[in-house]
Simulated assay, not measured.
Amino acid sequence: MGKISKKGSKYLRHALYMIAEFARRHNPVLKHLFERVKNGNKKRHKLAVIAVANRIARYIYSIMKSESSFVIIHENIMRLPEETRNTFFNSISLDFPKNTRKQIYQYSDVNGEIHRFVYKNETTESIV
């Protein structure tokens, strides 16, 4: 509805805000949303983080309501600017060990096939 409500749990609100802060730095799709809302204005930082938190809350609600797993749809990736798409595909790895401790995500390709991926660890990639 345009602004964050103070009616709910302050702990949940704080947790969503902290998740959004992390996601805006590491998830290229949510980073694009953050930059689009912020639009280079330093005073809009909190507003942009709240927009990311709102999107995450909507993702969570959708997953719980449909009782399914979260899949990034190919059409949604293709709507992003080319630079963001390249960042997304360069920051993921389809080859990971079966017993990985990283969070495993899913996206669909052009043919609708579901692929599992993990985000590459930027610190180890730059060292190698």
Rank of each mutant, 00 (worst) to 15 (best):
G112S: 01
M1L: 05
S91W: 01
M1D: 05
H45L: 02
T100V: 09
M18V: 10
I4C: 11
A15L: 12
N99F: 05
N27Q: 12
H45V: 06
N99Y: 06
L33V: 11
F70W: 11
F34K: 03
R44Q: 04
K31E: 03
V128H: 01
S5Q: 04
I77C: 06
K42G: 14
S68K: 09
R58A: 13
R85G: 02
V128F: 02
I92N: 05
A23Y: 01
N90E: 13
R25H: 04
H32R: 05
P81D: 07
R85T: 08
S93L: 10
K98V: 10
S126C: 06
K120F: 03
G112H: 00
T123M: 05
H32A: 07
V29M: 05
V52R: 02
E35I: 13
K43A: 01
L16D: 12
T123G: 02
R58Y: 13
E113Q: 11
A57H: 00
K6R: 07
K43V: 01
E67D: 04
K10G: 07
A15C: 05
M64F: 12
K38S: 11
F117M: 04
E67L: 07
N76T: 04
N76Q: 10
P28I: 13
N39Q: 11
V52E: 01
Y59F: 15
F70L: 00
V52Y: 00
H45P: 01
F117W: 06
H74S: 04
R79Q: 04
F22G: 11
S69L: 15
A57W: 02
T87N: 09
L94K: 09
N86V: 08
S68V: 05
I19E: 03
T123I: 13
S126L: 08
R55F: 04
A15N: 09
D95V: 07
S66R: 08
I56H: 08
H115S: 05
E82D: 06
Y59C: 08
E21D: 04
K98E: 06
R25L: 06
D95I: 05
F34A: 00
R36D: 06
I72Y: 15
E113L: 13
R101F: 11
K65T: 14
T84P: 07
M78P: 12
V118L: 13
G40C: 01
I73L: 10
I92S: 00
I60L: 15
A57E: 14
L94D: 12
N76I: 15
S62L: 08
I56G: 07
A57Y: 00
V49Q: 02
K3Y: 12
K7R: 13
F117P: 06
Q106D: 12
P81M: 14
F70E: 08
S68Q: 12
V37N: 07
I50D: 13
